[in-house]
């Protein structure tokens, strides 16, 4: 069904995994993830003239952003390293879904 189907909102707190001995962020497949400040978020949305809802999503349980202390609605700035065209920026909105 569509993303906008009427569903009763339920708040769930997930227990975070604590026994990771390895650092996910250092893995060569994982690009740099950064939380965007409120001011930068505003600028970004104005720059592309979009709303936050139109951005691609990232789950709040995503392993690559566990060290960032994020909440729903935050924007994550991702610096992708591409061997073909150098670095490029990508943005994702945090969701709980």
């Amino acid at each position: 069904m569509t993303a906008e189907s009427p569903v009763r909102p339920v708040t769930l707190t997930m227990a975070k995994k604590t026994t990771t001995v390895y650092d996910v962020t250092k893995h060569h497949l994982v690009p740099e993830h950064k939380k965007l400040s409120e001011k930068d978020t505003e600028e970004l949305l104005k720059d592309y003239s979009i709303t936050a809802k139109e951005l691609p999503k990232i789950l709040s349980s995503d392993p690559a952003i566990q060290h960032l202390d994020v909440k729903e609605g935050d924007i994550i700035k991702i610096t992708r390293e591409n061997p073909h065209s150098g670095n490029s920026l990508f943005y994702r909105r945090v969701t709980n879904g």
Partner: peptide, 8 residues
């Protein structure tokens, strides 16, 4: 996806 995340 489960271990390293969407971007990976």
């Amino acid at each position: 996806l489960n271990v390293l995340g969407v971007e990976a």
